[in-house]
Nucleic acid binder design. Structure first.
Lengths: 196, 196
DNA sequence: TGAGTTGTTGACTGATCGGTCCACCATACG
DNA sequence: CGTATGGTGGACCGATCAGTCAACAACTCA
């Protein structure tokens, strides 16, 4: 009945997400978005709405994907304790440290926008709570498996692990070299996830 | 020999710093700076240079002040272990949690600008290294005082403590309520700074 | 007192921003 | 094959941006 779209929606969202990830929200112009998406302004607006809505869509895509990875990571290891260690070490799980320097789109966006943009703040809270719940579940499993002391509150432990992970992300963004960062990650994992 | 300035330089820098702190660099316009400083555009340019130089000046002022506070905090407690605990708990040391929500100007700036602004990245690294050194010194003292195990590398422990602290700052920016944040801070302090 | 110097102010500029609009195009269906 | 429908792309818009500048003000010193 009409002209079909000449682009793949998910592919455009990924390109846009990478642009926001690398440059931030304010520093990304519509011209940048037109360039990386290959679409014209009109098409971009017609398909996704304005810059803010497009950003939220890309951010939501990121948190969904990212949340899926966390879920997989926590479920894949035979022992929950190993999964939790992998969770803390995730920010340094990248040979060259490029991922560490790029940081986490959700964290970047929180720092840039959470004070002024209620939608971003809500997404940050949603992501934070979902991740805490996932990690807490694994902490509970590790306790059942006898790898973690059973007297600690799993949710409280999960929050501490999440804070430690995000602290590592921050230090990666200061340009700290990947080897030092890895050592710090190991120290944190060892202290926060002691055997027995 | 000429007309004297009608403003106090440090007072202007503090006002400008607060504006950048609350809104970020990109979201702060020159008009905002004119408003909070009480100066005209020309005076601002004449005294401090362009927006970027003014920002760096304010950021440097912040890190100097902040570094001084850390130094005092670490030096004030009779036992180094208590000082280190206070260091980790610093982000939640504010009744209403307003400071936690505002975050740390250096961290905010690192997230917003470090990838694109070499000056900000350099300031971030400088601050990070200085703080690590200060904390490491206290860790060493705590070890000498018998309050921390002597087998750990003080610098490594300091990096872990700094990461934990910055992780708390991040969680504060997601709007996590101050009580929960305080509990997480206590958990981190307990795990990273065990007695004996 | 007036010449010299620096500080102050706000109007102004060119660039760039996000967003709109419309002429044009490709397709589906009657 | 003609028409209706939605997609496309870029010219265009008003707003706002950082930064400049020139007229004027306040002060020192000769």
């Amino acid at each position: 009945m009409a002209r079909p779209r000449q682009f793949d929606e998910e592919q455009v969202i990924r390109a846009v997400r990478d642009q926001f990830w690398d440059a931030g929200y304010a520093a990304t112009s519509l011209e940048d978005l037109v360039r990386v998406s290959g679409l014209g302004k009109g098409s971009l607006y017609g398909a996704f709405g304005d810059k803010h809505r497009l950003f939220l869509r890309a951010l939501r895509g990121y948190t969904d994907t990212s949340g899926g990875h966390v879920r997989e990571m926590l479920a894949s290891a035979p022992r929950a304790l190993d999964a939790l260690r992998a969770f803390v070490m995730a920010p340094v799980n990248d040979p060259g440290g490029a991922a560490a320097r790029r940081g986490c789109l959700m964290a970047n966006s929180t720092y840039e926008l959470a004070t002024s943009d209620p939608d971003v703040l809500a997404e940050a809270r949603r992501t934070y709570e979902a991740t805490t719940a996932l990690v807490a579940e694994s902490v509970g499993r590790a306790q059942e498996e006898g790898d973690l002391p059973g007297d600690a509150d799993p949710v409280e432990t999960a929050r501490a692990l999440l804070a430690a992970q995000q602290g590592l992300v921050f230090m990666g963004r200061t340009g700290l070299d990947i080897d030092t960062l890895t050592a710090t990650a190991r120290t944190l994992a060892a202290k926060l996830l002691p055997d027995a």
